[in-house]
Nucleic acid binder design. Structure first.
Lengths: 265, 265
DNA sequence: AAGTGGTCTAGACCACTAT
DNA sequence: TAGTGGTCTAGACCACTTC
């Protein structure tokens, strides 16, 4: 007997929103003992990943989803709360539940960011220096989990404030899903590049890991950042992974003047 | 009318665990419209802060707390889930709910940590070089929110692996609650100092903010870390705050060989 | 066997947003 | 006014831990 065979048959849903409508999905067979709210969460996640509900779009209402999946509203709510906690969904009282889009205002990565030495926030503008496809180097391959001869799209850019370049950045992306980005009009100045990944390449960044170290300025960095070659720099390396768990971005950011800060836990 | 006046009187609790016992607390007056689960959460937090339930100790059971506060079990669960999410409580199926103690195995700060350049975890041993009370400098005062003539307890220590010192550290603590730490036996080698704050000074670290920058080695650092004076170092500054929200630790960590890493979001 | 937390349901009522 | 999510309750049953 499954944990879902109860005194009240779960099929007896009286709240069918449109008469004659039929449920569009059912959760696992009675034998599967994985909690229903986890199954529901994964199903919602799958539909976000496969684009059934697009970033910025709204999910069906709680009663509708509960009917579709054949579970109670409370179970749907628990599944949603999990995804809200991951920053994938956003609920708005009286309006509905939305798939969070990446945007410059509301980035999913507020917990680690560059700041000025006095704590002022850093409000940069990006400028792409070069965009080219190349063979992935050893670091790229390790970070992105690629094979020997794999190709990557490499972006070199600076990020400036008031016209002063403060960050020199190299971004490596797997050539396959990101080829469309190479000649993307308007991309050269776009600060929030994750919006582009999502809109043009269908890749949504879910999480990222940052590793911070010191490095010394190469001649290219020295030229871009107006510092002497060999000057000590802060180097932030980021590996960003998609909703599927695959790494999709390897980014290196060098800076001489800025600091890097975690939000208060 | 409050949001708690319903068709079923909330007082009608039949699950009184000990006959004749009386509730020990009641939530806000009917006029207060703040959600009950938030009131419950704050009350639980207050009892953790004031030591009613000590780190490592167990809370009363859900039915007991629900009876005490005059709310349903679901409301208690929601309040607890919030505190679990903050890392303050830990629930164990069949056993109970525990106030999380700081420990070297299970630190509340797993999200940012030192690692070796190749990604290996850093497993240090601490060695205190000096512990003395001093007048707080400008940085200490700013970080800890102290007044002009305030005193701080300053600890200088190294953190080594296999006998090799890799981090040079200065920790400033408000002299008032931390005076007991000065002559603490055994503290000299203790790596996880937050355990001491909690056990000896009644101060539980709740959250921390890290700011990462580059710096150059002073002669003291050069001596301790076996690097030339002026060598570029990674500097991590941390401000840790207590459950009350007051800053209680200002820590500066310098390293030449290590990197600093965030967990995968 | 008793007690604990974990899952799931059903339904009441409230508060916010749209129209 | 209708529809949405937010809060709160009550109770069933399950799974784990302890005795």
């Amino acid at each position: 007997m499954s944990n879902r065979m109860r005194s009240v048959a779960p099929q007896a849903h009286l709240a069918a929103p449109s008469p004659g409508e039929t449920p569009t999905a059912r959760l696992a067979a009675p034998l599967a003992s994985r909690p229903l709210y986890l199954q529901a969460r994964d199903l919602l996640l799958r539909r976000i990943v496969d684009g059934t509900w697009k970033p910025g779009g709204y999910l069906p209402s709680e009663p509708q989803l509960a009917f579709d999946l054949g579970v109670s509203i409370g179970t749907i709510r628990k599944a949603m709360e999990d995804l809200v906690g991951q920053g994938l969904l956003e609920r708005q009282h009286g309006r509905g539940t939305q798939v969070v889009p990446h945007s410059s205002d509301r980035s999913r990565f507020r917990f680690l960011r560059f700041v000025h030495g006095d704590g002022r926030p850093f409000r940069p503008v990006a400028h792409v220096l070069a965009a080219a496809t190349a063979r992935a180097d050893a670091q790229d391959r390790a970070a992105l989990g690629l094979g020997a001869g794999a190709k990557v799209l490499v972006l070199l850019r600076t990020r400036s404030e008031d016209g002063v370049p403060l960050i020199y950045e190299r971004i490596a992306l797997p050539a396959d899903p990101f080829a469309a980005l190479k000649a993307e009009p308007g991309a050269e100045m776009l600060e929030e590049i994750y919006v582009l990944y999502q809109a043009r390449c269908g890749q949504t960044v879910a999480r990222a890991r940052d590793t911070i170290a010191t490095d010394r300025a190469s001649s290219a960095m020295a030229g871009a950042l107006c510092c002497p070659p060999g000057a000590p720099l802060l180097l932030v390396r980021r590996v960003a992974v998609a909703l599927t768990g695959d790494p999709i971005e390897y980014r290196q950011s060098w800076t001489a003047a800025l600091e890097y800060r975690s939000d208060l836990d």
